[in-house]
Simulated assay, not measured.
Amino acid sequence: MSDAPPTPSEAFDLLLAGNRRFIAGTPEHPNQDATRRAETAPEQRPFAVLFGCSDSRLAAEIIFDRGLGDLFVVRTAGHVAGSEVLGSIEYAVSILGCPLVVVLGHDSCGAVAATRAALTDGLGTNGFVRDVIERVTPSVLAARAAGLTGNDDIIDEHIRHTVDLLVDRSRLLADKIDAGEAAVAGLSYHLADGSARVVTTRGLGARQA
């Protein structure tokens, strides 16, 4: 591993390059051999935090063609963020030195669909699934207030809301962004073709996949 960590922009470019390989069906499967296993055993220095939905089709290292020690992965249904998520992300940024945090949403998100059904039809849920729906509700309501009705538009709004929530609630992350030491990007993954589209960024300037 290189001693110098990548910049936020360099880390983002590494992710997008891996996703392009995945889309094209030409993955390199980097850092997945015995040498890398031994190399990362004493310590980890991932170049990005991947905070994504728990959906079984969003396997981060596959989507972005990465390997052992590359990504610090945190996943919850609907990428809803509580204190445990914020603490995990802050640990990766402050202790492990990750320069990039990515929020990864996707089309056909069950958590967003369940939230829309609960708000539209009053369909309730039992147990802790209700907590997931409550955390997605502000995003769906914001999308409605903006006149957004399409599934992809509402999911994009939820991704933007999650990015804003991370930066607004984590003073550590906000300070790192202000200092140019970290950035946050929101991506939307398309299940059919494997592409990760840029929805929003904080600290990267205007970027697109």
Results as ranks from 00 to 15, higher is better:
residue 138 P to H: 03
residue 144 R to H: 03
residue 143 A to L: 00
residue 50 L to M: 15
residue 168 D to L: 05
residue 48 A to P: 15
residue 169 R to L: 11
residue 189 Y to G: 11
residue 182 A to I: 13
residue 168 D to W: 02
residue 90 E to Y: 04
residue 33 D to H: 06
residue 89 I to R: 06
residue 94 S to K: 14
residue 137 T to P: 02
residue 69 G to M: 10
residue 17 A to L: 09
residue 143 A to S: 10
residue 58 L to C: 14
residue 167 V to R: 10
residue 124 G to Q: 14
residue 143 A to H: 00
residue 40 T to V: 15
residue 130 R to K: 08
residue 158 H to P: 03
residue 102 V to N: 03
residue 124 G to A: 15
residue 44 Q to G: 07
residue 96 L to S: 13
residue 26 T to I: 09
residue 186 G to H: 05
residue 71 L to I: 08
residue 139 S to I: 07
residue 199 V to Q: 12
residue 38 A to K: 15
residue 144 R to C: 02
residue 169 R to V: 00
residue 45 R to G: 04
residue 32 Q to D: 12
residue 74 V to M: 13
residue 119 L to Y: 06
residue 122 G to C: 02
residue 202 R to W: 09
residue 106 H to F: 03
residue 99 P to G: 14
residue 110 G to D: 07
residue 9 S to N: 09
residue 184 V to R: 06
residue 208 Q to Y: 10
residue 45 R to F: 09
residue 20 R to M: 07
residue 101 V to A: 06
residue 28 E to S: 10
residue 7 T to I: 10
residue 70 D to N: 05
residue 169 R to K: 11
residue 33 D to I: 14
residue 156 D to R: 06
residue 199 V to K: 10
residue 64 F to A: 05
residue 57 R to I: 11
residue 150 G to W: 01
residue 106 H to M: 02
residue 46 P to Y: 01
residue 163 V to L: 07
residue 63 I to H: 05
residue 173 L to Y: 10
residue 202 R to S: 11
residue 83 S to T: 12
residue 27 P to V: 13
residue 81 A to N: 01
residue 142 A to M: 03
residue 122 G to I: 03
residue 159 I to N: 06
residue 99 P to T: 08
residue 157 E to N: 10
residue 96 L to R: 06
residue 57 R to T: 11
residue 8 P to C: 13
residue 113 A to H: 04
residue 176 K to P: 10
residue 209 A to K: 07
residue 141 L to D: 00
residue 186 G to K: 04
residue 127 G to F: 14
residue 192 A to M: 11
residue 94 S to R: 14
residue 44 Q to M: 03
residue 39 E to A: 15
residue 138 P to G: 05
residue 94 S to Y: 01
residue 151 N to W: 03
residue 14 L to P: 11
residue 145 A to Q: 09
residue 16 L to R: 06
residue 182 A to H: 06
residue 119 L to K: 11
residue 4 A to N: 13
residue 126 N to I: 06
residue 73 V to D: 05
residue 28 E to Q: 09
residue 131 D to K: 04
residue 138 P to K: 02
residue 66 R to S: 14
residue 33 D to M: 08
residue 58 L to N: 01
residue 118 A to C: 09
residue 151 N to T: 08
residue 13 D to F: 07
residue 75 R to C: 00
residue 47 F to W: 15
residue 108 S to L: 04
residue 97 G to T: 09
residue 182 A to K: 01
residue 58 L to M: 14
residue 34 A to Q: 08
residue 122 G to R: 04
residue 186 G to L: 14
residue 167 V to E: 01
residue 36 R to D: 08
residue 175 D to A: 12
residue 42 P to Q: 06
residue 188 S to V: 03
residue 75 R to Q: 09
